[in-house]
């Protein structure tokens, strides 16, 4: 393995046919972080949110119901695993599918709550996630058409960047931004965080940020420096 990716050596690969997972220091760190958080999420309770009541002096404890807790934890674990997978996958299309999986699971995690505002935010986020499938898969397809391969290791060894690849990577970026809800589309996501259930909400945030960081690595691999 004498392939270098962005200046760091590949430590190892896991080949599964055409889809090859690879590890550099960076991927390994992100992978381990995602798994560590997932493990903690799996064993955590949720917090109780104490809210002041209107017009009275009393407090009101908002908790996560048992039934709701189970499904949300299940989805959160899946989300964490998907994020971990997205950190190490060496295939563009596989990456987009991982992103889609985290997107839909994120929607599910908040879709299971009862507050109308949060549901509304989840719905708007869902709409963005659906629209984002066009740039996500479309961008990957454009890069496939321009380079003839989907493997990041192969793309890494190319020496040129055509305008089509740049368009593809911009689309890819927009797609990931939509699926994960980052700037400037953050508002839908931030509203979802007002509900109780912090470990599960954390995984939403975790997945989107880690995937964004990983996306930057992928974009740098596709677009060569001037």
């Amino acid at each position: 393995m004498d392939i270098t990716i962005l200046g760091s050596q590949i430590i190892g690969i896991i080949p599964l046919g055409d889809i090859v997972f690879y590890f550099t220091q960076f991927n390994l760190f992100m992978f381990a972080t995602a798994l560590a958080f997932t493990a903690i999420v799996a064993i955590s309770k949720t917090e109780t949110q104490v809210e002041a009541e209107f017009g009275k002096l009393g407090d009101r404890a908002v908790t996560v119901a048992k039934k709701e807790f189970k499904i949300r934890r299940f989805l959160a674990i899946i989300c964490g695993l998907a994020t971990a997978g997205a950190m190490i996958t060496g295939d563009l299309f596989d990456f987009t599918l991982f992103v889609c999986l985290t997107g839909i699971v994120n929607i599910g995690i908040v879709g299971a709550v009862r507050q109308v505002d949060v549901l509304d935010a989840a719905y708007q986020y869902g709409l963005i996630a659906m629209m984002a499938s066009l740039p996500l898969f479309g961008g990957a397809a454009l890069i496939l058409a321009a380079t003839g391969t989907l493997s990041l290791l192969e793309i890494n060894s190319l020496t040129y960047t055509t305008p089509m690849m740049i368009l593809g990577s911009i689309l890819l970026f927009l797609g990931v931004a939509g699926e994960t809800g980052v700037a400037p589309f953050f508002a839908t996501k931030a509203e979802m965080f007002r509900t109780p259930g912090s470990p599960f909400l954390l995984i939403i945030h975790l997945s989107s940020l880690l995937i964004l960081v990983r996306l930057i690595e992928i974009l740098l691999m596709i677009n060569k420096p001037f």
């Binding site: 599918l97 929607i107 599910g108």
Partner: peptide, 19 residues
């Protein structure tokens, strides 16, 4: 050769149905 894609794809479907 691209079996992992299908793993994910069916997981996406499953998660959507679970939700």
């Amino acid at each position: 050769t691209r079996g992992f894609d299908t793993v994910l794809e069916s997981s996406i479907l499953m998660m959507a149905f679970v939700i």
